[in-house]
Structures are given as C-alpha cells and as structure tokens.
Design a protein around this nucleic acid. Structure first.
Length: 114
DNA sequence: CGCTTGACAGGTC
DNA sequence: AGACCTGCCAAGC
C-alpha cells in the first residue's frame, strides 16, 4: 500500500492542529517527485483521517470553492475552530500558522536541501 | 487514445 | 498588483 497518494496522506496527517501547510510544501517534502496539482488531487480523494482542511495554497488562500462553496465554508469553519487566524475572509495568516517541521520523516524526505 | 480539467506554483509583463 | 503563460499530472470522457 504505497504510492504518491499515500506518501501525501502520511505527510498531511503530520500537520498539527492549528497549523497549515501548502500544496507546494507537501509536494516538496514528498519522497517521490510529484507536483502540487497531484497533492490537490490527493486531497480531493483523501480518507476521513486526513486533515485536508489544513492544506491551503502558497499564499494562504483557500482555493477550494470553485465548485463547492459549501466545502469552502467547511474548510474555513474547521480552521477557525482550530484558532487559525485570517488576514482576509478566504486567506489564512501563513506567517503565523505555516507548518515548518525541522525534520521530515526519512521515508518521506526527498534528497534536497531547502 | 487524445483532449480537457483542475483543491498549484513560478515566472513574465 | 493582477492578468497571463507554462509546467505539472491523475482522472474523466
């Protein structure tokens, strides 16, 4: 049971309560070469135990809502309930809440230095 | 099998 | 700053 999607899910499960990460950050931390788009696709099919709402775009925008406004509102309410602050109605404060792990699990770490 | 569609990102103008 | 282009890649048709 492996593959890019599961690697993505393992990483997203590590994003702590009250913190957020971006599609690009998750892709960069992933061991396999995947694109941010693939992370987005994985989120759209994520299992129940994956905190998909903690993944936003690079600037903190909630880029989910084009097809489902209800999902956008759900994401916003979930983040607000975790104490995440917003700089705009659809944009979280990345400076304060971006997840910046010192170490990513070896199995997931890609051979690159930031 | 080829074309379109995105829950993206980096660059140009 | 914001519109636009390109690379990206799994799914769906």
């Amino acid at each position: 049971m492996s593959g890019p999607f599961n690697a993505v899910y393992r990483l997203v499960r590590r994003v702590p309560h009250g913190r957020v990460s971006s599609y690009g950050d998750i892709a960069a931390m992933c061991a396999e070469e995947i694109s941010p788009r693939t992370v987005g696709w994985a989120m759209s099919a994520s299992p129940k135990d994956v905190p998909w709402h903690r993944i936003v775009n690079r600037r903190g925008r909630l880029t989910i809502g084009r097809r489902s406004v209800a999902l956008l509102e759900l994401q916003r309410s979930l983040l607000e309930s975790e104490g995440v602050e917003f700089v705009h109605v659809d944009q979280v404060d990345m400076e304060k809440h971006r997840w910046t792990p010192r170490r990513v699990p070896q199995a997931v770490r890609k051979g690159r230095r930031s």
